[in-house]
Simulated assay, not measured.
Amino acid sequence: MRNRAFRALALAAVAAAWQPPAPARAQVDTAAMNALARMGTYLNSLTTFQVRAEITREEVLADGQKVQLASSADLVADQPRRLRVNVSDDRQQRLLLYDGRSFTLFAPRLNFYATTAAPGSIQDLARQLEDRHGVELPLVDLFRWGTPEARVAEITSAMVVGPAEVGGVTCEQYAFRQAGLDWQVWIQKGEFPLPCRLVLTTLTDEARPQHATTYTWNLAPSFNDAAFAFVPPADARQITFAEVAAERASRN
C-alpha cells in the first residue's frame, strides 16, 4: 500500500510540475523573403511572356463538404500595355483582351461581350477592374509580386521547405503565413526564378479550402498586334460592365 501511495504521489507531483511546451514563435526566414523578392524583381523585368496555368480550387458547400473545380488559363503579356488571357473550365469560357486603350471581356459560349476604356498599364487596369467593376484579372499576382501591392510586410511567417520538382523543373519550395492565409510557392532554381506552383490555403474557413495553380512558362512567345485586338462576331451581343459603386448605392 505504501508503495502504491508513493507512486501515486510521485505521479501527481510530476503532473503538477509538467507544463505543455510553449507554441513555437513564428519565424520570418530571411532566405525565404529574399527568394520571394528575387522572384518579384525578375517577374517585373519581363517585357513579354506567355504562361499556361492549370488551376484547381475547392468550394465549400453549406454542409461543409468540399468540391474541387478545375480550370485553365493561357496568358500572353506584352508589358506594360497589352494583354490576352483565355480562361476555360467545364462550364464557361472567357477571353480577355487589353490593347493599352480598351479592355474587352468576351464569353464565346454565350456570345456576348463588354468593352470599357482602360488605363495605360496592366497594373492600372487590374486596379480599375477591381475597384470599378468588381472583376479580378486572372493571374493578377504575376503582375503584383515585387511591387508594393504584393504587401509582403503582412507576412508573419516565412520558411524554406526545401528542394522540389514541378513538371520536371527543379525548384525550391517556400511556405508563408499571413492573417487568414497560408501559402506556398515553388520557385525555379537558377537564373530564371519563376514561380512554378502556388498553393493558397484559406484559414478563415474551418474547412481550409485550397486554391492551387501550376505554371508553364514561355519567355519567347510569338504574337502579332491582332492577338490583342477584339473583332466581335457579327451576331455577338454587347453588354455593359456593371459599376460596383452604382450597385452599392442602389443597395443603400
Rank of each mutant, 00 (worst) to 15 (best):
A16P: 04
E172S: 12
E130N: 10
T48C: 11
A236G: 04
A153F: 15
T115N: 04
A227M: 09
R208N: 06
C196D: 05
Y113S: 06
A5D: 12
R38I: 14
V231A: 15
D63K: 05
A220Y: 10
I239C: 12
Q178A: 12
W186H: 00
S102K: 13
D182N: 10
Q123G: 08
A249C: 15
Q65E: 15
G40T: 03
F49V: 03
W186A: 01
N44Q: 09
N252P: 11
I239T: 14
T147L: 11
V67L: 10
T170A: 15
G168T: 01
H211Q: 05
Q210S: 00
I239A: 13
Q19F: 14
T240P: 05
T47K: 15
Y174Q: 02
A179I: 08
P119Q: 00
A158M: 00
S72C: 03
A179R: 07
K66R: 10
V85F: 02
D89I: 01
E172Y: 12
Q93Y: 01
L95I: 13
G134E: 03
R177C: 06
F192M: 15
V185F: 01
N218R: 03
V14P: 04
A107L: 11
G120A: 15
V87K: 04
R248G: 07
E58L: 02
E149D: 09
E165F: 12
F143W: 02
A117H: 13
F103Q: 00
P232W: 01
A242T: 14
V199A: 01
D131E: 15
P21C: 06
Y215D: 05
V85I: 11
P195E: 00
T216G: 13
Q210R: 06
R177A: 04
S121P: 05
F223H: 00
E58D: 08
Y174W: 00
Q128L: 15
A13Y: 08
V135P: 03
A234E: 08
R197T: 03
E247C: 09
V67K: 15
